[in-house]
Design a protein around this nucleic acid. Structure first.
Lengths: 239, 239
DNA sequence: TGTCGCCGCTTACACCGTAAGCATGACTAG
DNA sequence: CTAGTCATGCTTACGGTGTAAGCGGCGACA
């Protein structure tokens, strides 16, 4: 550059580079445009830095993604083991709502939490950290669950959260930025006759029920399903 | 080329190129090494063809993936609307087991089914085709479900399948080829003290229950959860 | 005033998806 | 039999991606 600036402009990038800052910025970028469009280069640019600089603080793209899901889920552990764990139902409800909050706030990032392979094969998304699972299990066992029941509850709970929240995140993520170009819709194969007419012909029920199908009852559905799960666990507990 | 071969060697690639063949081969490659490692070039190579030739039959990578999930799920519709739809519980059970079969046979591909955005916002994975959803809804409504109940059942059922099967697929997919290199485990940050010792210290319950956590009860869990869901729907139906 | 280590930069490479155009063979009309 | 059309696969080329390897400068401490 001409002029040999003695002090760097320091225009936009205020904070110093660090793993936390990188992860945080990456998450913001994913929230904005989806995980697909996050690249080391674009991330570096947003940080006012060259791509290779990121590798000082992050092992690579995979490690970065791992860091993102970890940072998302670390908010869970923070203040969990309190007086909160006195009734297991309340405990499960709190955990469920916290995880849901994460999914709703970061719909584009949640598929990562759901899909990424856990650190150990006996950890199941979305509760992927050893600490959380430990709190989960010991809370239940302290309140009368047998070992087997506690593990079963962990699995059922994981499955419930995963299904419910991944669905919700998919919907919310799609409506918050289907910026994907109209996909050309050219030729190249599969003429695919008129969609609307086809729908009325071959799927009248779907057509008729479309308003109902499009309604957003996710809050209510989550509560109801969670309640059903808790009932089931309770029934199992008291045999 | 020297020799101007009059007939092509026809050594390895027997069948002619077609969308179905391409999709089929791509699915095989995903089953083998995961979706991450599927590239147009490697796929073309396996077909004994140049990458750009694929674009005659497929709009691009996205369209290819779409074709793969469609081909996976098309096996559902084939013989669904039969005498099978006489009891909705049996119907749901059949559908559930068929989808599960798909997930178990293609654990590395199932995340695509789960994660990919559906064609319409009111379609929910893994039942992503209009035909299947239509059969689903009309079957239930024919047997006494109100519109709202049927739609609710569709949502609950989707959520159940998605959670249960994505978990199962993740586990099975991981054990069937964690070919991922040991990830270097170098330095660059986060010293991360000895893992085993840390686990015993901060997560004694997890350590104690590890054998139980590692057990594979997926068949049984699937049946039990499905049963619970059907019970719940039935209770809702008969109020 | 060294000198040493961190931290970001530069360069380079292999690989990716895909736009655009060309070569070739098979099939059909005259 | 010839000429024309068309489907199919190949070649070339471009911009983008993750990342290995080494360099440079700058602040901190002796």
């Amino acid at each position: 550059m001409a002029g040999t600036p003695k002090k760097k402009p320091t225009g936009s990038h205020a904070r110093r580079l660090s793993r936390d800052l990188i992860v945080e910025t990456a998450l913001a970028q994913i929230d904005r445009a989806g995980a697909q469009s996050l690249s080391m280069r674009s991330l570096a640019q947003e940080l006012g830095v060259e791509a290779m600089s990121l590798y000082r603080h992050v092992h690579g793209r995979e490690d970065l993604l791992e860091g993102i899901v970890a940072s998302l889920m670390d908010d869970l552990v923070s203040d969990l083991d309190e007086e909160l764990a006195q009734h297991w139902q309340g405990f499960l409800q709190t955990v469920a709502h916290r995880v849901r909050r994460i999914a709703v706030e970061h719909p584009k990032a949640f598929p990562l939490v759901a899909t990424r392979h856990p650190a150990a094969p006996w950890l199941r998304p979305p509760l992927r950290s050893v600490e959380v699972v430990n709190t989960f299990l010991s809370t239940l066992i302290d309140q009368g669950f047998t070992d087997k029941q506690a593990v079963g509850a962990y699995r059922a709970f994981s499955s419930f959260l995963l299904g419910q929240l991944l669905l919700e995140a998919t919907v919310r993520g799609a409506e918050t930025g289907p910026v994907e170009e109209p996909l050309d819709e050219g030729d190249a194969d599969i003429p695919e006759g008129d969609g609307q007419t086809t729908l009325a012909d071959t799927a009248p029920e779907v057509r008729r029920l479309r308003p109902l199908l499009s309604e957003d009852r996710s809050d209510e559905e989550f509560e109801v399903s969670l309640e059903a799960l808790l009932d089931r666990l309770n029934r199992e507990l008291t045999q």
